[in-house]
Nucleic acid binder design. Sequence first.
DNA 1: CGTTTAATCAACGTATTAGTTGATCAAGGA
DNA 2: TCCTTGATCAACTAATACGTTGATTAAACG
Lengths: 130, 130
Amino acid sequence: MILSPVSEAHLDRAFAALADPVRRAIIARLSRGAATVNELAEPFEISKQAVSKHIQVLELAGLVSRTRDAQRRPVHLEAARLEAMTAWIDRYRLAAEQRFRSLDAVLERTTQPAIQADATTPITDKEQQS
Amino acid sequence: MILSPVSEAHLDRAFAALADPVRRAIIARLSRGAATVNELAEPFEISKQAVSKHIQVLELAGLVSRTRDAQRRPVHLEAARLEAMTAWIDRYRLAAEQRFRSLDAVLERTTQPAIQADATTPITDKEQQS
DNA sequence: CGTTTAATCAACGTATTAGTTGATCAAGGA
DNA sequence: TCCTTGATCAACTAATACGTTGATTAAACG
């Protein structure tokens, strides 16, 4: 699976886009299939124009795209951008968890030296990357 | 692995927190280990106060925590909240990809336009975006 | 004590955001 | 053609976000 590099500006917009409950609800809805602006606006109390703006925000973030069907403009989810977000998060989450497990091993070894029979866990060094 | 439920407000704050390149850089740095405000501020051109505010934003989002060590207040990454974010995204990303694969299968199966049983998924479209 | 170091608080300017209402455009259908 | 439908544009307001500088707290050190 090839993941195209996403610029910092793209990440800015993607994370900002999901920082709104209305937009997250739109994403959730679109995961079940494409929908028009009217359909997407229906569950909300806010105006249709406001929903249209939310969709523009999502589109600028690369999270959705639009096609044309007569006077309707169905909105589609772009899973690739969602994947780019999880890829960013996981990169650092997994590094931190790995580091945490290594630290755990060290603590266990130093506080109870007698019980320690397994020394296969790497202790030091792990850094680098931008 | 038990994932504690995260409120909508928490997701709001967590996604908003990552929608800033400075804060993402802080997260990246913390994935390699805890750091003080001064250490975190060093790579940036902005004032230390501004970095302090960024850390507060991350803390309010549950993405970092702070302990106390004399007059230093080391900042630690909270991987659990990062995981909650990927869990949210993956829920809908995987659903969409699943749906997409099913649609693919349908298209492959019916090279000739057979009876359309499900009208919720438009077939004639073409994705593209910058 | 007084000083240094680490960090936050307070007040402020500016930019961006989310919402509103009213007008407009664009594609069908009568 | 005129009318309806789907959606966007334009202008405006209120609230929030990001950065600044200057003052302040709090612990450690001499």
